[in-house]
């Protein structure tokens, strides 16, 4: 019709169609630009710029560790386990930053068995220094869930398969707390002994660690280890009738307690002298017994 402004008289449908095709065109356009400029399948016109930028941030250490991580899938025949639930790295205790979940490496015989315990314990469970004015109480603790109730992984067996039950809280670990010796039996006042990453001191350290001199860093490291003893508990401190851990209170089932205290683990420690390294367990009753029988 003469006089009608065609360009101003589009119905809503044409707007929607226009929008659809515009978005489509833009996606294709972005794809083509990417293909043209960066993609290894295209002419890669900006490839040299990308390589120049990557060279600045490239690290051989990072490349190698990524390669190792990738290769681990090929080094483990028994179906490299799926990702298990775990705490985010920034919620892990401070020890994790340097020592990871696999801190033991010196003793060739038992290093991986000792590392196995990090599934159940925080580092402080074995390595916390005693204090005369406090006694140590062990509790399951999950930084993500206050007053977690469990049941927890490894506290009981599936009666049908005989496998350890996963439980409701796979993240919680047995954690030590200080309780004043003057407090009453029923007092619930506990002081956490684990060093978390959310304290101001740790946050500050993470912020400036790259700027510290080696001496300064060593000093801070000593501060972190002030309350930590280098040698942890002996196996027999826990895997014995008079265990320092109250398995029942920690929610372990009767047969699991029996297993942990008396059956195979104890048998393994006492029967295999080779396994039982004298310098590692100097004062344990089993070693004394072995010496006597000799």
């Amino acid at each position: 019709m003469p006089g009608v402004k065609k360009r101003l008289a589009h119905p809503l449908l044409s707007y929607l169609l226009g929008l659809f095709f515009m978005v489509l065109t833009l996606i294709v356009f972005c794809g083509v630009i990417h293909h043209l400029a960066f993609s290894s399948h295209g002419p890669k016109l900006l490839g040299s710029f990308v390589e120049k930028y990557e060279a600045q941030t490239k690290s051989k250490i990072l490349d190698d560790s990524q390669k190792l991580l990738e290769m681990e899938k090929h080094n483990h025949f028994h179906n490299f386990p799926a990702e298990y639930p775990k705490l985010p790295e920034n919620m892990q205790p401070v020890c994790f930053i340097c020592h990871s979940d696999f801190p033991h490496s010196k003793n060739k015989r038992i290093r991986s068995l000792m590392n196995m315990h990090t599934q159940f314990f925080t580092c402080e469970t074995c390595h916390i220094k005693k204090r005369s004015d406090f006694k140590i109480v062990y509790k399951w603790h999950n930084p993500q869930k206050e007053n977690t109730k469990g049941p927890f992984f490894g506290t009981s067996y599936n009666p049908r398969t005989g496998r350890l039950l996963e439980g409701d809280d796979p993240i919680a670990k047995i954690t030590p707390f200080f309780k004043s010796i003057n407090s009453s039996q029923n007092s619930k006042e506990l002081i956490s002994v684990i060093q978390l990453q959310n304290t101001p001191f740790v946050k500050d350290y993470i912020k400036v660690s790259g700027k510290l001199s080696p001496e300064e860093r060593e000093g801070i490291k000593n501060k972190f280890h002030q309350k930590i003893k280098p040698k942890g508990h002996n196996c027999m401190d826990c895997h014995a009738q008079n265990s320092i851990l109250n398995f029942k209170q920690l929610g372990f089932s009767e047969n699991r307690i029996k297993y942990l205290r008396t059956l195979e683990i104890l048998g393994m420690l006492s029967q295999y002298e080779d396994f039982y390294l004298p310098e590692l367990f100097p004062d344990s009753p089993v070693q004394t017994n072995n010496k006597e029988t000799k």
């Binding site: 190698d64 386990p81 990871s100 696999f102 290093r111 068995l113 590392n115 599934q119």
Partner: peptide, 21 residues
């Protein structure tokens, strides 16, 4: 008895994680 535990692993001298789980 030992190998069912998922943290039964270590980091070796070459930085490689040895997973015995």
């Amino acid at each position: 008895m030992c190998h069912k535990h998922r943290f039964n692993a270590r980091i070796d001298e070459n930085g490689r994680k040895r997973n015995y789980h």
